[in-house]
């Protein structure tokens, strides 16, 4: 069997983290290909249902990236995202997912390097957790 190659959904807010991901590209910072970015205007647009759906459809991990605390382009959207994700982790556990499959991180528009580091580490973490248990049951 080939090595586990996780599939990860990354939600990026338009103003900071999506720009940070672009910045990683501009600086040609290299990282594994395992993630697919979905752009929303704010991390607060990410509905817990989007995360549950991602996991239900077989994503091995979901990462939500937003602006740093106090830097949110929409004043406090990232705080709401933080609260929602914290609550959602409890729900995930109830459903039998390791809550570590969901991560929230802050990446600013000028932090290409942090984007690279965050994604590389998360991919490694998910590799450590192994495939989404839903896929095993299928």
């Amino acid at each position: 069997m080939s090595e586990f190659d996780p599939k990860i959904i990354a939600f990026c807010c338009n103003w900071c983290s999506y720009a940070g991901a672009d910045g990683a590209g501009v600086a040609r910072l290299q990282m594994p290909t395992n993630f697919r970015i979905i752009r929303t205007m704010c991390s607060a647009r990410v509905d817990p249902e989007h995360i549950l759906r991602s996991l239900a459809k077989g994503a091995d991990g979901v990462i939500v990236l937003g602006c740093h605390p106090a830097d949110c382009h929409y004043i406090g959207g990232n705080y709401r995202a933080r609260r929602r994700m914290a609550l959602l982790r409890f729900v995930l556990e109830e459903y039998g997912f390791d809550p570590k499959r969901l991560k929230l991180e802050w990446v600013s528009a000028s932090e290409g390097e942090k984007f690279q580091k965050t994604m590389t580490e998360f991919i490694d973490d998910i590799k450590g957790l192994g495939p989404n248990p839903i896929k095993e049951g299928a």
Partner: peptide, 8 residues
């Protein structure tokens, strides 16, 4: 930016 440049 989010593909060819970071997976060269």
């Amino acid at each position: 930016d989010q593909c060819s440049w970071i997976h060269m």
